[in-house]
Computed example of a mutant assay.
Amino acid sequence: MSSNASSRGNPAIGDIIRSVVVIGAVVVALYGIGQLFTSDPETNVKTVDYVSVVEQARPAATFALAAPTGLPQGWRATSARFQENGWHLGVLTDTDDYVGLEQLRGTNERAVDRFAQDSKSVGTADVAGQVWNVRSGPDGRWTYLRNEDGLTTLVNTSASRAVLEDYIASLSTS
C-alpha cells in the first residue's frame, strides 16, 4: 500500500472551508448580477392623465361625475375608467397609499359588496357639507360612501381618514 492515501470521502477541514468560500462567492456574484437587472417596482407604476378622461367623460355621463380638482404634490393617477353607468379613478399618494373613487348606479350595499368587502360600519362623517357613511375594513382600510338619487359614490383607501377626507373635499362635479 502506498503512503499517499486519498482523502476522498473524508476531506480535510481546509478543503471544506475553501469549498464554502467558493460557493459563497458564486452566490454573492449571482445576487449582484440579479440586482443590476432588477428594476424598482415603484418606477413600474404607470400613470394616466385622468383630467383628459374626465373632460371626455363628463359630457357623456348621465350622472354628476366626481373627480378631484387636482392632486397633491407627489400623488399620481394610476387608473381612470368611464362606463355608461360608472366611473373609477385610482390614485397613489406620495406615500404609495391607494385611494380609489367609484361611482356606480345602485345601492350602497352593492358597492360595499364589490369594493369594500369585510368592512364594518362605524358611523358617519360630515365632509365638505355632505354626510358620508364610514366603514372600517381589514388592514386599516377606510371606506366612505354615500348614495344620492340612486348613484353611489364610494371612496376607499389604505391611508388615514384625514387623507381620505381631504381627498373627498377636493372632489368636484364641474
Score class of each variant (00 low, 15 high):
Val91Ile: 07
Gln103Pro: 04
Gly86Gln: 06
Thr69Cys: 07
Leu71His: 10
Ala128Glu: 15
Phe82Gln: 06
Gly90Thr: 03
Pro59Thr: 10
Glu102Ala: 02
Val91Gly: 04
Trp87Ala: 02
Gln117Asn: 03
Asn85Gly: 08
Tyr50Ile: 06
Thr124Phe: 04
Val51Met: 14
Asp49Lys: 00
Phe82Glu: 09
Ala67Val: 14
Ala66Phe: 12
Asp118Thr: 02
Trp75Val: 07
Ala57Asn: 14
Val91Ser: 05
Phe63Val: 15
Gly137Ile: 08
Ala77Arg: 08
Thr78Arg: 00
Thr93Ile: 08
Asp96Ala: 10
Val112Lys: 04
Ala128Val: 12
Gln83Gly: 12
Thr62Cys: 06
Pro59Glu: 09
Val48Glu: 14
Thr78Glu: 00
Ala60Asn: 12
Arg81Ile: 11
His88Val: 12
Phe63Met: 14
Ala128Met: 11
Val131Gln: 14
Ala61Met: 12
Asp49Val: 00
Gly123Ala: 05
Ser119Thr: 07
Ser121Trp: 00
Gly74Arg: 04
Ser119Asp: 06
Gln83Cys: 02
Leu89Pro: 02
Glu84His: 12
His88Glu: 12
Arg81Gly: 01
Trp132Gly: 14
Leu65Gly: 10
Ser79Tyr: 13
Phe63Glu: 15
Val122Ile: 09
Val48Met: 15
Thr69Ser: 11
Trp87Leu: 06
Glu109Gly: 05
Thr95Met: 09
Leu71Glu: 13
Gln130Ala: 13
Asn85His: 07
Glu55Ala: 15
Gln83Ala: 14
Tyr50Met: 06
Val51His: 10
Thr107Gln: 02
Ala57Trp: 15
Lys120Cys: 01
Ser136Val: 02
Ala64Tyr: 08
Glu84Leu: 10
Gln83Met: 11
Tyr50His: 09
Leu92Phe: 06
Val91Thr: 08
Asp49His: 02
Gln103Thr: 03
Val99Arg: 06
Ala67Gly: 07
Gly123Leu: 04
Arg81Thr: 11
Tyr50Gln: 04
Gly106Phe: 15
Arg114Asn: 03
Gln83His: 05
Ala128Thr: 08
Asp49Glu: 10
Thr93Trp: 07
His88Leu: 13
Ala60Gln: 15
Thr69Lys: 09
Gly123Asp: 03
Pro72Tyr: 01
Ser52Thr: 15
Arg105Trp: 05
Pro72His: 02
Leu89Glu: 03
Gly90Arg: 01
Phe63Thr: 13
Ala60Thr: 12
Arg114Trp: 01
Asn108Ile: 01
Gly137Lys: 04
Thr95His: 05
Ala80Val: 05
Asp96Pro: 01
Asn108Trp: 00
Val51Ser: 13
Ala61Leu: 11
Val99Pro: 03
Ser119Val: 02
Ala125Phe: 07
Arg114Phe: 03
Phe82Gly: 03
Ala57Phe: 13
Ala66Ile: 01
Gly106Arg: 02
Val54Ser: 11
Arg135Asn: 14
Ala128Trp: 10
Glu55Gly: 10
Asp49Ala: 09
Val53Pro: 00
Val48Leu: 14
Val91Lys: 03
Ala61His: 12
Leu101Ile: 11
